[in-house]
Design a protein around this nucleic acid. Structure first.
Length: 549
RNA sequence: GGUCCAGUAGUUCAGUUGGUAGAACGUCUCCCUUUCAUGGAGAUAGUCGCCGGUUCGAGUCCGGUCUGGUCCGCCA
């Protein structure tokens, strides 16, 4: 294409591509460079974290460079504060980029800017280069033209798209282009595809292995009429100049790998390694489908923060999802497993990772069980300050009290309870420790008691009479056992099961314990009762034991 | 419609170059036990989507078929 026409199309002051080649020095030989490129839509998808965690971990295990690039070329979707959301979300999961934006205004690294919206000059130079090489051309087709084209193709049962003989602007003469320009017609730039759709070519994907795909023959739009590039072109330009060696990205890009490889090759640039990560899916009425931002609240990572899953658990779950051999590794190395686990791209889940909340809960329980009561308290408080203000107030006002509650069968215990998995459930879980939330009527007691009304009343009376707050755990329980014996109850449930006729109409120790438990906690299930009593204190305990008086 | 990926225990997934299947979670049983949650021991379970082919031998290779998913925008 004539120089004058190129200048008419993109302006006279566009730099040669060599300018950028000089500006961005090549990365050290052999260095692994990878990145994550979220678009700032104001929404952080679980998949975004998943797609960042994998290259981040991979790159750091290879002592490489991991950078963050904001892919904000879609001006229509731009949202205020979205970049901060991206950075803070990544940070919450321990993903800190070596290069890239560090907040809404600043960035670090020598290959920037790391916002695509600020790289317009670089892309223009790229277009200039492609026009000179005859690898791109301006296209004046309107949206309506494209729509009509698609309709015609579908009617003929042909592959829809702008390719081959359907690509009308492909063969525009320079005179025709001049004429359209003089009419002021808007245009985009398209890539001049060189492939034949009938020809199959092998591509190597680090996750999926060798795959065969047709060559690309689509004359895809590479620069929109607003002067910003589409993903495809930005990917090629940026990953070339930023020195990316490993393009690790979501599965949905697999189909455009032939296009991207073709662009690199026709320009004469080195083709990076590709690794396509299977999407996170969920089961919906028997079918799996991609986690949907619109339909599924759990697609948004804020869901996990709101529910109060510990980030560590979510992170471990995601690693687990990506590479199920992590389970074996963790069993062998329970300490520090997450950081030291070396996962291989070729071991990545190939088909699609299905969310399994049961498993997440399990991991979360295991993780929370490793926390001391003080650590747990701090985490709950941090969570509550954002998501449950009144509970946060309660936590602050009763710090020591609540810490001792959380410490039941935790601090110093050889077998830690594993009944918490999300912070949002803890408030309810411990509510009976507070008189305001403790509600038990006589009717509640009698209806839930395993024994008859008269027997229950009698047992309550006897227990209150024999209760001594200063008993240690053994003395305390012996007292209940004595009470059982005195009333002709079985000392343990097994004894009753062996001789049911002996204890007909009576009960066992566990029945007495249940009645005490109901009086103290209002529930039939609770952690260690003696510990609860000690934390509640003498006055509160006696008051609750005196319900029937 | 085209394209590519996948289809292995109830569930989520492993199964490097072909030698009749493993883990985790779940479920169940027993032990521990005042309830629950733990902890310990164990059990349960799969004609490896279906059909055919190659082979002494196939989850693993080939062909076909069905099912599910991805992508096919001036969105990324």
């Amino acid at each position: 294409m004539k120089k004058e026409l190129i200048e008419k199309l993109i302006g006279a002051d566009v730099k040669d591509i060599s300018y950028w080649a000089d500006k961005f020095s090549p990365r050290p030989e052999g260095q692994v460079v990878s990145r994550v490129g979220p678009s700032p839509t104001g929404f952080m998808h679980l998949g975004n974290i998943y797609a960042a965690l994998i290259p981040y971990t991979f790159t750091h295990q290879n002592k490489g460079v991991f950078f963050l690039r904001i892919e904000d070329t879609d001006t229509k979707r731009k949202v205020e504060g979205a970049v901060d959301l991206v950075i803070s979300s990544l940070k919450a999961f321990g993903i800190n980029a070596d290069e890239g934006p560090i907040n809404e205004g600043e960035e670090k690294g020598a290959y920037g800017p790391y916002h695509q919206s600020q790289r317009a000059d670089i892309y223009k130079s790229g277009i200039k280069m492609l026009l000179e090489k005859d690898l791109a051309y301006p296209c004046f087709a309107t949206e309506e033209d494209i729509e009509a084209l698609r309709k015609e193709q579908t009617a003929l049962k042909l592959r829809p798209g702008y390719y081959g003989k359907w690509a009308k602007c492909r063969n525009l003469t320079e005179e025709q282009i001049e004429e359209n320009l003089s009419k002021g017609m808007p245009f985009v730039f398209r890539f001049r595809a060189s492939g034949n759709h009938e020809t199959k070519k092998y591509f190597t994907d680090l996750v999926k292995g060798k795959i065969q795909m047709p060559e690309n023959d689509m004359d895809i739009v590479i620069m929109k009429s607003d002067g910003l590039p589409t993903y495809h072109f930005a990917h090629v330009m940026d990953d070339h100049f930023m020195g990316t060696t490993h393009v690790i990205r979501a599965d949905e890009w697999l189909a455009s790998m032939p296009l991207h490889v073709q662009m690199f090759e026709s320009i004469g640039w080195k083709v990076p390694n590709y690794a396509h990560i299977a999407p996170i899916q969920k089961l919906d009425e028997g079918n799996r489908r991609k986690l949907s931002k619109r339909k599924d609240p759990e697609a948004n990572i804020s869901y996990y923060f709101e529910q109060g899953y510990p980030v560590e658990a979510v992170k471990e779950y995601l690693i687990n999802l990506a590479n199920s051999s992590f389970e074996d590794y963790k069993k062998a190395h329970p300490e520090n497993a997450l950081e030291t686990f070396e996962f291989k791209l070729e071991n990545l889940n190939v088909s699609g990772a299905l969310l399994d909340f049961k498993k997440l809960e399990n991991i979360s329980k295991e993780f929370i069980a490793t926390l001391s009561s003080a650590d747990l308290y701090n985490r709950i408080l941090t969570w509550a300050e954002s998501y449950d203000k009144s509970f946060a107030d309660k936590l602050r006002a009763n710090a020591d009290y609540i810490k001792s509650i959380l410490g039941i069968e935790r601090d110093g215990a050889e077998k830690v309870r594993k009944d918490y998995y999300i912070f949002s459930k803890i408030s309810d879980e411990i509510s009976y420790f507070f008189d305001d939330d403790f509600k038990l009527t006589k009717e509640d007691l009698l209806s839930q008691s395993p024994l008859s009304e008269n027997l229950t009343k009698d047992i309550v009376k006897q227990y209150l009479a024999s209760f001594d707050f200063n008993h240690n755990k053994e003395e305390w329980f012996n007292n209940i056992k004595d009470l059982a014996a005195k009333n002709g109850f079985a000392k343990n449930p097994k004894e009753r099961d062996k001789n049911p006729e002996l204890y007909a109409g009576k009960g066992t120790v566990s029945d007495i314990a249940t009645i005490v438990r109901l009086l103290i906690t209002g529930r039939t299930q609770s952690p260690d009762l003696h510990a609860i009593i000690q934390i509640l204190g003498k006055d509160r305990t006696l008051k609750r034991l005196s319900l029937l008086d």
